[in-house]
Structure formats: C-alpha cells, structure tokens
C-alpha cells in the first residue's frame, strides 16, 4: 500500500480536461476508460445506488485485476470475483445482505485464497476517501484501535497526538484511479443531482483521478442551473456520462425503484447450491448473453421491474 505523491496527484488533475463539455457516451465507450489493474471505487452502498450497468459493462469488456473499493459490497462483489474482473476488494462488509445470509461466492473465493477481501471499518473507508478528497495523505480517527481488523490492514498507523498525547489511528488516503457512480439525474457535462442517501459518493468523486457517471436521466444544463444547490457532484470531476435507465437493477435507486427482491432471491438460490457453477450460470444468463442493457432488464422481467418501481416511488408518499 503506497500513498500517491501529492505532486503526481495534482499533475493528474491538471492534465484532465476540466472544461464544461459534453461527456455523453455509451457504456462500452466508458468501459474503455478503465484499464486492467486500475484501482476502481464503486459508489452507493450495499444494495443501494450500485452502478450496476457500469459493472455489467466492465465484466462484459473482460477487464482484469481491478483493485476495487466500496463502502459495503453486496452481490456486485461476488460477480467481480467470479468474472475475474477483480481479485482484491477493499471494503467494510461483504455479503449479499443480512436477510440472505453470508455470501457463498465471497466465501468460496476468499476461503480458497483465489481472491482477497481486505477489511477496514466503515468509518475508515469513509475517512480514507475523505483524505483522498482533501489532498492530504491520511486522516486521524479513534476507532479500529485494539482490534484484529487493524492488525490485518496494510498502511494504517498509530501515532501519539502531538497536542494531547492520546493514541490515534491514521488511515491512508484512497485516491482511486477511477470512480463509477450512479445518480438519478445529471447534465451532459456531469453536474449530478443525487436524491436521498449520498453514502460516500461525494468524497469518492473528489478523490478519484477519473469519474464515470451513469444516470437514470440526462437533463439540460439550464435545469441544473435553476437549482445549483442540488448539484452534489460537479462537472469538473467528471469524465464520462452514460444514460442508463434502471442502471442499478437489481439493486435500488432512491425514490425510483427498490431492490428487485424476487431477483435477489433467485441470485441467492442460484449461488447457494454451488458458488462457482451458480455464479457462472448467473453471469452467462444475465451478463454475457444479453444483447444490450434493455435485454438484461427483460431477462430480469417486466413484472419485477414494475414491482420494484412501484415500491421505490412510494418513498415520497404520505
């Protein structure tokens, strides 16, 4: 674990075209912005606002050895392992979700040492992205001390506070090469509005050297400028914008659709019998065989999509 040099970090930022320009492209074009071996941060949390369409595109493009980080990892982590896209995931919690039990795929890959799950506390993940966003090499914090979690992490250090003499933990900055984040709406330049829970996405966008936004809808820059207080991620951090309706399916997108529970149950069933063959069958049917994203959604099914949308839009009802 090494912290990038501050001047290199600035240089990478200076070298980007940060102007107000149209960045709209296809999922496939956006996938081409990610190189094998890159560090990749994934927005959202657990089964919420997961940029699933972008992950789908990265798996279909056959990316290799991405060092993935996320606040909490759900089914997308299983699929990143099983597809070979990643053998190293840095996160605080990794399983489909508590109601589905411990992920069989995560277990199969980590217990056989085919892949690594590097565990940090949730606040440590957040402060690592925040340090990255702030352009400082670390953040001090007061948890993880005394635990086995600290013993197994690379790069965290304890220090005696120069002001109080207390023991503090310093967690190293995360400056991912690429961040992929899904939002409810943004303009063609990448000014993004996020409804509901923002998780760690704003720090993540500021920390990354490149940001790919997927969005339910592209709106005009005029619409964004009417409510600039609602812009959570600024155009100057964004390198690509892809419009993908239902881009988190089968996970949720706040205010639009809840998780596709029946499909999540299907995934759990498919991987429960045998993690390897189950994950492969799932990848074939939902990742490799579909002609396009609409075909993927069709395979999940209209009834499920309508149900998820009905439940999702109900969050604002009395």
């Amino acid at each position: 674990m090494s912290i990038p040099s501050y001047l290199d970090l600035r240089q990478k930022t200076r070298a980007r075209d940060r102007s107000l320009r149209d960045k709209v492209m296809s999922l496939e074009e956006a996938a081409a912005l990610v190189a094998d071996g890159d560090s990749l941060a994934i927005g959202g949390c657990t089964a919420s606002r997961t940029p699933m369409a972008m992950i789908w595109a990265l798996i279909r493009a056959g990316k290799r050895d991405l060092e993935v980080s996320r606040s909490i990892v759900s089914t997308e982590g299983d699929l990143l392992y099983a597809s070979g896209v990643s053998r190293h995931i840095i996160t605080s919690w990794f399983s489909q979700g508590i109601v589905w039990g411990v992920s069989k795929v995560m277990r199969a890959y980590t217990e056989s040492k085919r892949a690594r799950f590097e565990e940090w506390s949730h606040m440590a993940m957040g402060l690592r992205y925040r340090a990255g966003a702030m352009g400082v090499p670390f953040m001090p914090m007061r948890s993880m001390l005394g635990s086995g979690v600290l013993d197994r992490t690379e790069g965290a250090k304890t220090m005696e506070c120069p002001f109080t003499g207390e023991t503090l933990l310093l967690v190293p900055a995360l400056n991912p090469e690429v961040a992929i984040i899904h939002v409810q709406r943004c303009d063609a330049y990448g000014n993004a509005q996020i409804d509901g829970l923002t998780f760690m996405d704003i720090d993540m966008a500021m920390a990354a050297n490149k940001v790919i936004l997927t969005t339910e809808r592209i709106v005009s820059n005029e619409q964004i400028r009417r409510h600039p207080d609602q812009t959570k991620i600024g155009f100057f951090t964004v390198d690509a914008v892809v419009e993908v309706p239902f881009g988190c399916a089968p996970h949720e997108c706040y205010g639009l659709y809840e998780p596709f529970y029946t499909h999540m149950d299907l995934y759990a069933q498919m991987t429960a019998r045998d993690a390897d063959t189950g994950a492969k069958a799932y990848l074939d049917r939902f990742y490799h065989e579909p002609k396009n994203w609409a075909d993927y959604l069709s395979r999940i099914g209209m009834a499920e999509l309508l149900d998820a949308q009905r439940r999702g839009s109900g969050i604002y009802d009395d």
């Binding site: 909490i72 996160t91 605080s92 919690w93 990794f94 399983s95 411990v102 992920s103 995560m106 277990r107 980590t110 217990e111 799950f117 565990e119 940090w120 506390s121 949730h122 606040m123 440590a124 007061r142 948890s143 993880m144 001390l145 005394g146 635990s147 979690v149």
Partner: peptide
C-alpha cells in the same frame, strides 16, 4: 485460514469503539 469468512465489521467496529 478461516473455516468461514464472515461478512466483516461494517460499522460494527466504529460503533463498539465509540
């Protein structure tokens, strides 16, 4: 060499520490 890899801390470590 775990018998079972469990999901991990999430915020558990932070909550229990603080």
């Amino acid at each position: 060499n775990p018998k079972i890899r469990l999901p991990g801390t999430g915020g558990g470590n932070d909550i229990a520490s603080l």
